[in-house]
């Protein structure tokens, strides 16, 4: 039972990271019909920015401050990279969704290639404070502190995003744009600015997801391809949750994260089943598509 609870806890943490990666992707697709392949790149760039901050700044700052700065830096890096991408590469190609996908694929390959050239293709270690590695003892359970960080970030972003979309003027424009872009434009509202904003928000969440994944799940290691492997699970979450739906992404991310943790532990231990955790997410996708082709929270066209 204890093991089950610990697994649930880390499953929720994984789900939180999937949510951060997937919700931006889903919003971008919902508003602009762009399948953003460079989302994996934003995650990787975030992780590398975090690495640079944590290793370049003087250690007299103290490890906790450095980690916080690394997380903030990763988020800003993701936002910056996404904003620049939208303005320079995506904007000139509006109305050509295939070209926009292709551009993001090319960008992802090119910049990941650059990272491999600059940092090498081997994984690099980020220094983190001890308390992130240690577990907390709660009611007979040992829960890793890093997972608290991921869950906290996931909850804050989910609430913040929902409030932003519900209450602010731009949030309302974005929601309206997801429903019917042409109508928003016809009402004389500059949707283009909302496009850039959505990219920046999505990029910031991706950068955050990238550094959190590094800290919580990959043993503080950063590597050039980490974002692209996370991206595949983000895709799965987006399709299961329903394209364009934030709540769908949140629910699907939780389900996928939990499923992956449970199957990895309970079935993955047998020989030849090591990858069952990853496989099960794809199986879930196939089942959901058979049952509900538009995903859990997908709109009816």
């Amino acid at each position: 039972m204890n093991i089950f609870l610990v697994l649930t806890f880390s499953g929720v943490a994984l789900g939180a990271i999937y949510f951060l990666a997937a919700s931006g992707l889903s919003l971008i697709y919902g508003l602009m019909d762009v399948l953003n392949f460079a989302h994996g790149l934003f995650m990787t760039l975030g992780a590398y920015a975090g690495f640079e901050i944590a290793t370049r700044l003087p250690s007299s700052f103290g490890a906790p401050t450095l980690v916080i700065l690394a997380i903030v830096g990763a988020t800003l890096m993701g936002a910056l990279a996404a904003g620049v991408t939208e303005l320079i590469l995506i904007r000139p190609l509006y109305g050509k969704p295939i070209s926009q996908i292709l551009i993001t694929i090319g960008l992802d390959l090119a910049v990941v290639g650059l990272l491999m050239g600059g940092f090498g293709s081997t994984a690099l270690q980020i220094p983190v404070p001890l308390w992130l590695i240690e577990p907390t003892h709660i009611g007979g359970l040992y829960l890793p502190n890093a997972s608290f960080l991921a869950i906290g970030a996931g909850v804050i972003v989910l609430v913040g995003l929902e409030l932003f979309l519900a209450l602010t003027r731009y949030g309302i424009i974005i929601r309206a744009g997801v429903e019917n872009r042409e109508m928003v434009r016809a009402l004389g509202i500059d949707v283009g600015r909302a496009f850039t904003l959505v990219f920046v928000i999505g990029g910031a969440m991706a950068g955050l997801a990238g550094i959190l994944y590094t800290i919580v799940f990959s043993g503080d290691l950063v590597s050039p391809n980490q974002g692209d492997s996370l991206l595949i699970f983000a895709f799965i979450v987006v399709v299961i949750g329903g394209l364009g739906s934030i709540r769908g992404s949140a629910v699907a991310a939780l389900v996928v994260g939990l499923l992956q943790q449970y199957t990895t532990f309970y079935i993955g231990g047998h020989s030849g089943w090591a990858q069952i955790g990853d496989l099960s997410t794809v199986l879930l996708l196939a089942v959901v598509l058979e049952w509900r082709p538009r995903g859990l929270f997908g709109r009816v066209a």
């Binding site: 090319g106 960008l107 390959l109 090119a110 990941v112 290639g113 491999m116």
Partner: peptide, 10 residues
């Protein structure tokens, strides 16, 4: 090569 091919593609 991956950078150059990606850039050419873009």
């Amino acid at each position: 090569p991956q950078f150059l091919l990606g850039a050419i593609f873009v």
